[in-house]
Amino acid sequence: MTQPDEFRVDPDVDLHVPADRGELAAHPAAVLGAIAAGGVLGALARAGAQAAFPHPPTGFPWATFGINVSGCLLIGALMAVLTARPAGPLVRPFLGVGVLGGYTTFSTYVVEAHRAVLAGAPGTALAYLAATVLGALLAVWTGDAVAGRLLARAGGGEAR
């Protein structure tokens, strides 16, 4: 536990991590610009997937489910890579905070569950709520584990 990144809990920004603490003061426009640009790309990808796979109010929201689970897989992998191989100061803001934060959504998740209940499908709502929690946690764990193993095999990365 000597590396500061070992203490990171929040991938968006964690003030316990010295680099995160100083990044906004060091380059405010670049950091916020990278987050905004990444957020736009992530949100448009999410909107595209939701438009391609619409669902009725009583149906299972497969598009949002797939978006949130795949986004969790990718954040697990991204943070494993960035922890083992520190990159430029804008990589986490752009890819993690921006693209993946903008791609995944918590508000749509709870509103879709609420809508399913109102539409008379509480079973679908419950299944959707539980499946996303399980899928998201399994995905973030898998992304972290697979990226960690690949990094260790490639050498240079710390053994996990």
């Binding site: 809990v9 929040d10 991938p11 968006d12 957020g39 736009v40 992530g42 949100a43 999410r46 909107a47 949130n68 986004g71 969790c72 990718l74 954040i75 697990g76 943070m79 993690g96 993946l100 934060g101 903008g102 791609y103 995944t104 959504t105 918590f106 508000s107 749509t108 998740y109 996303t132 998201a136 946690l137 995905a139 973030v140």
Partner: peptide, 13 residues
């Protein structure tokens, strides 16, 4: 709202 909220951050935390 979509970009303000996040599942990726929640699961990683």
């Amino acid at each position: 709202c979509g970009a303000l909220t996040t599942w990726s951050t929640l699961s990683y935390e």
